[in-house]
Amino acid sequence: MNPHPVIEVEGLRKRFRTRRGPVEAVAGIDFRVQPGEFVGYAGPNGAGKSTTVKMMSGILLPSAGRVEVCGMVPYRERKRLARRMGVVFGQRTQLWWDLPLEESFELVGHLYRIPPAERAARLARLEEVLALGPLLAVPVRSLSLGQRMRAELAAAVLPAPEVLFLDEPTIGLDVEAKAAVRDFLRELNRDQGTTVILTTHDLDDITRLCSRLMIIDHGRLIYDGTVEALRTAYGTTRVLVVDLAEDEPVQVQGAVLARAEGRRRWLEFARDEVSAAELIARLLAGHEVADLTLEEPDIEDIVRRIYRGEAPP
């Protein structure tokens, strides 16, 4: 059933020696990623996200444990893996700083031995999706951060990698640029089946894009599952928003009135005490309802609580 995983990580650790003593940046993590997955890798600053990505892309040697990407040990087979993997680091450029963007793409084409016709076809698509047309003649150093990130993404996917590592690609981008990057990644994953590992501390990126979420904190994986499952596991309170037919006091067993505004009521209830269906049934038994919606707990809230150690893992 399961195809061979694109990424296998087992007992992976990285310890740095610093002036203030050793730092365990990654403290033993395990996971597998299947082809076509879109994985969000979240965690507060200094949690160990970049360190993990560096080990997976082969530019950092693990202190212990095992990592395999596309069946290769990254640091040992870096050059071979480079042909099948794309990497984008938000703060660093991989384009040629002084060259017009167009020439950077041409060089990427040569370095990855992409046949010219194919390069042209792929570039035409990328130019359209990422709106690169007006930027092609501009030297990379003159691009804005948002423009440059679009260019970096295009260069990284031009060789059609099987797996794409993105380390904070939306950092410092404005709303519009973020949206462009997200749309592009969603399409890439859906249409090309590219496996994407997206490191970010912007949970919005993750809820909008990722089928799977991994949270790392102090070098340890503290969550690995779907965004939905995280809500179920940690978001104990949900809210039923009700628009009553008439302005009247409401009382439903198992729910607490959190807020009232005109004929609208916010009823908070615990997931493990009462189901939404049961609560709605009780509500409808005593009141006439014009409309209702169920609000799931805010993922930002949940994750913030997990970071603070308030939510039990």
Binding site: G58, I59, T93, Q94, L111, Y112
Partner: peptide, 18 residues
């Protein structure tokens, strides 16, 4: 120093020749 050199290690082929 800026860390951008790492890009050379992430490309196929020979960095010195490049």
């Amino acid at each position: 120093r800026s860390g951008e050199f790492v890009a050379e290690l992430l490309r196929p082929g020979d960095p010195y020749l490049r």
